[in-house]
């Protein structure tokens, strides 16, 4: 976990420094525009260095680094399923995509046809009846291009 911790800390520092560099060289911001982001970004980096030093001490003390894989595979699988909702919604629209997502997810996770169909129908009612009709939210109703 320490390695992941250090990677994340370095990633955050790189993110902040990248944007500050973009501000300086790409957008050519003046000091008035960049003053506060520089203050915030430098603070983040200084704290990040402190965190790296702290984790280096822990590594030096010999704490184990074997917890990183614990429970990670099911979490990644869950994240992949969650991520799959996005293309379904973008391609099929919210009104069809979300109930279909619920149906496919439930069916592929051991639920019966009846439970999957009923919950997909409930989702349809919530999306179309609740959000599109009742709250008049302009959700993409039809699949892309139709």
């Amino acid at each position: 976990m320490i390695t992941v911790d250090r990677t994340f800390t370095l990633g955050v520092m790189a993110f902040v420094l990248d944007f500050l560099a973009i501000g300086v060289w790409h957008y050519d911001y003046g000091w008035t525009i960049l003053r506060f982001p520089v203050l915030a970004g430098v603070t983040v980096c200084l704290i990040g260095i402190g965190n790296l030093a702290m984790t280096a001490r822990i590594m030096h003390a010999g704490d184990s680094d074997d917890t990183v894989q614990t429970g990670l595979r099911p979490a990644i699988s869950a994240m992949a399923w969650i991520g799959a909702a996005l293309p379904m919604v973008l391609l099929l629209g919210y009104v069809i995509g979300l109930p279909l997502y619920i149906f496919i997810y439930l069916k592929s996770h051991g639920q019966g046809w009846r439970v999957s169909a009923v919950l997909a129908a409930v989702t349809f009612v919530v999306v179309y009846g609740g959000f599109v009709t009742l709250l008049a939210i302009p959700l993409q109703v039809l699949p892309m291009g139709l």
Binding site: V89, Y94, L98, Y101, I102, V127, I137, Q140
Partner: peptide, 27 residues
């Protein structure tokens, strides 16, 4: 969890879109 999780996800997606009617918010 396999039933509750995706149902909550639907609420989250709808909530994100409805906040500004912008699909980029969902992303």
């Amino acid at each position: 969890g396999h039933v509750l999780g995706p149902l909550l996800l639907v609420l989250v997606v709808l909530g994100a879109y409805a906040s500004a009617n912008n699909p980029v918010d969902v992303l």
